[in-house]
């Protein structure tokens, strides 16, 4: 039981203490600890990645075997994976190899296109935001509109009131960015900072044990 429950928590506490103390010690011994921690963390992550690949393959193979819904697409997924590995083996990974081209013109292109869907989604999100149903939502909306206009030259052009000394949309948007937006960011950052502090403390002390599983 000690090996399963207590020892991991002791390791957590020891490592937490060591790394916290390491921050304050400039001696080269401490630097050595830090450099090795980084190397060790990378090696553990390398093995951890294997876990992911294995479970990915398992999920799709199971789907094909049991012929659950959309199992055909699992075949396509595995086939694409296999093709990439074969390409890497026959043509290497250099620039302009089959491997790179396959990645650039399929996956990277699809990812960029999915990313670009944001342009449409942001329009529908803006439309939904425009149907503001509370005063605070109106504030959000107004700030967003001023920001949008203030970032492009057209904001200045339609600010006819700037001739009378009233600041133009661009100036107001700059102020929003540097003042209330900054305040909001800081309030959230301070809160999140405290939350992170408490959470790391709970992990080191063993109060927070979710990541260890049951």
């Amino acid at each position: 039981m000690f090996w399963k429950k207590q020892l991991p928590l002791i390791i957590v506490f020891m490592m937490g203490l060591i790394m916290t103390v390491q921050y304050f010690i400039p001696h080269h011994v401490s630097k050595w600890v830090y450099v090795n921690y980084v190397d060790w963390a990378i090696v553990i992550a390398i093995f951890g990645a294997f876990l992911g690949y294995f479970s990915f393959l398992r999920v799709h193979i199971t789907r094909i075997r049991k012929k659950t819904s959309n199992w055909v697409f699992s075949i396509i997924t595995l086939a694409s994976l296999l093709i990439m590995i074969v390409f890497a083996l026959i043509d290497g990974k250099g620039s302009d190899s089959l491997f790179q081209n396959m990645f650039l013109y399929t996956s990277a292109a699809i990812n960029a296109t999915v990313f670009s869907l944001l342009a449409f989604y942001i329009s529908s999100a803006s439309y939904r935001a425009f149907r503001a149903h509370s005063a605070q939502a109106v504030a959000l909306l107004l700030a967003a509109v001023i920001m949008m206009l203030g970032r492009v030259p057209i904001g200045d052009k339609i600010s006819f009131w700037s001739a009378w000394g009233i600041p133009s949309i661009n100036t107001v948007s700059q102020w929003i960015l540097n003042s209330p937006n900054m305040a909001a960011k800081r309030a959230i950052a301070l809160g999140v900072g405290l939350g992170s502090l408490l959470m790391t403390l709970k992990i080191i002390l063993g109060i927070e044990r979710t990541y260890l599983g049951n």
Binding site: A125, A144, I188, G191, V192, G195
Partner: peptide, 24 residues
């Protein structure tokens, strides 16, 4: 807890936990 993504969740979701509220 990321301020840059909260506006999108606020507009598209019914209820949003802002930053520290998630930890709480």
């Amino acid at each position: 807890d990321d301020m840059t993504q909260l506006p999108f969740f606020l507009t598209a979701c019914d209820y949003t936990l802002i930053g520290e509220e998630l930890y709480a």
